[in-house]
Amino acid sequence: MNYFKIPEFLFDVLGEKQSIFEVSCTILFALIGSGIVYYVADFHLDNWKSLIAFILITDVLAGCIANFSLGTNDFYAHRPKNRLIFIAIHVHILAIAWLLSEPMSNAFIIWGYTIVSASVVNSLKGRPIQMFVAANLMCYGIFLLLSLSLQVWFLMVSMFFMIKVLFSFAVDHFTHLNRASLKNKI
């Protein structure tokens, strides 16, 4: 795959280098996924709250895919402090719930579980068990989401939020590869 240099202001989103394929897949998923959520939710983009919520939903969906990319993963693998900050600032699900008048109690449960689980997974960086623990916590998280009384659209967004932060981002998916050989690829 051919990689190209990402503009510096997008490093935190896409890393330093990215492939056209990965960027295209990220954008496509964000657009199609947002369209599906918009259709299922049947809300209208007729006020500032719903517009901001829709942008945040699109960001959650885009990040869910982008964080699996080699470029984004590699960028944060070399910046552990940035990874912790990224996990800590993910209040998207709280903001979406508030903006679209969803029960905040459910949003806090989802957010708390996701952030604590992502922190545990992140603390296991470099250990072979990291991905297994992440998958385990993700599966328990899905049970948690299904046990809450959530509207279908909020369940969808919550699931992708959890995948984005807990599994897609907190795991170093390429730790088993030789970092020197990765540098040659990107």
Results as ranks from 00 to 15, higher is better:
Asn2Tyr: 07
Tyr3Gly: 02
Tyr3Met: 12
Phe4Leu: 11
Lys5Pro: 05
Ile6Leu: 09
Leu14Ile: 10
Gly15Leu: 09
Glu16Ser: 13
Lys17Thr: 08
Gln18Phe: 01
Gln18Gly: 01
Ser19Val: 07
Ile20Trp: 09
Val23Arg: 10
Val23Gln: 12
Thr26Leu: 03
Ile27His: 07
Ala30Met: 06
Leu31Arg: 05
Ser34Arg: 03
Val40Lys: 06
Ala41Pro: 02
Asp42Glu: 14
Phe43Gly: 02
His44Leu: 11
His44Arg: 11
Asp46Cys: 04
Asn47Tyr: 05
Lys49Met: 14
Ile52Arg: 02
Ile52Met: 07
Ala53Trp: 01
Ile55Ser: 12
Ile55His: 04
Leu56Arg: 01
Ile57His: 05
Ile57Pro: 08
Ile57Trp: 01
Asp59Cys: 09
Val60Asn: 12
Ala62Asn: 06
Ala62Met: 01
Ile65Trp: 11
Ile65Cys: 06
Ala66Ile: 10
Ala66Trp: 05
Phe68Lys: 08
Ser69Arg: 06
Leu70Ala: 13
Asn73Thr: 13
Asn73Ser: 15
Phe75Asn: 04
Phe75Lys: 05
Tyr76Ile: 03
Ala77Thr: 11
Ala77Phe: 06
Arg79Leu: 07
Pro80Leu: 05
Arg83Ala: 15
Leu84Phe: 13
Ala88Val: 04
Ile89Met: 12
Val91Trp: 10
Val91Ala: 13
Val91Gln: 05
His92Met: 04
Ile93Gln: 04
Leu94Gln: 07
Leu94Gly: 09
Ala95Glu: 07
Ile96Trp: 09
Ile96Ser: 02
Leu99Phe: 07
Leu100Asn: 05
Ser101Arg: 15
Ser101Ile: 11
Glu102Lys: 12
Ser105Gly: 06
Ser105Phe: 14
Asn106Ala: 06
Asn106Gln: 10
Phe108Asp: 06
Ile109Pro: 12
Ile109Val: 13
Ile109Asn: 01
Ile110Tyr: 10
Trp111Gly: 08
Gly112Asn: 00
Tyr113Asn: 03
Thr114Lys: 00
Ile115Ser: 10
Val116Gly: 11
Ala118Phe: 00
Val120Thr: 04
Val120Gly: 02
Val120Ile: 15
Val121Leu: 06
Leu124Ser: 03
Lys125Pro: 00
Gly126Ala: 09
Gly126Val: 01
Arg127Gly: 06
Ile129Trp: 02
Gln130Leu: 03
Phe132Gln: 11
Val133His: 00
Val133Tyr: 00
Val133Trp: 03
Ala134Glu: 02
Ala134Asn: 04
Met138Val: 07
Met138Gln: 12
Cys139Asn: 12
Cys139Lys: 09
Cys139Leu: 15
Tyr140Leu: 11
Ile142Asp: 02
Leu144Cys: 01
Leu145Val: 01
Leu145Asp: 03
Leu148Lys: 11
Leu150Asp: 03
Leu150Gly: 04
Gln151Met: 08
Val152Arg: 13
Trp153Gly: 02
Met156Tyr: 15
Val157Thr: 12
Val157Gly: 04
Met159Trp: 14
Met159Asp: 07
Phe160Ala: 01
Phe161Cys: 03
Phe161Leu: 00
Ile163Phe: 15
Lys164Cys: 00
Leu166Met: 08
Phe167Tyr: 14
Phe167His: 09
Phe167Cys: 00
Phe167Val: 00
Val171Gln: 04
Val171Ser: 03
Phe174Ser: 05
His176Lys: 12
Asn178Met: 05
Asn178Phe: 08
Asn178His: 08
Ser181Asp: 14
Ser181Ala: 13
Leu182Val: 13
Asn184Leu: 15
Asn184Arg: 15
Ile186Val: 14
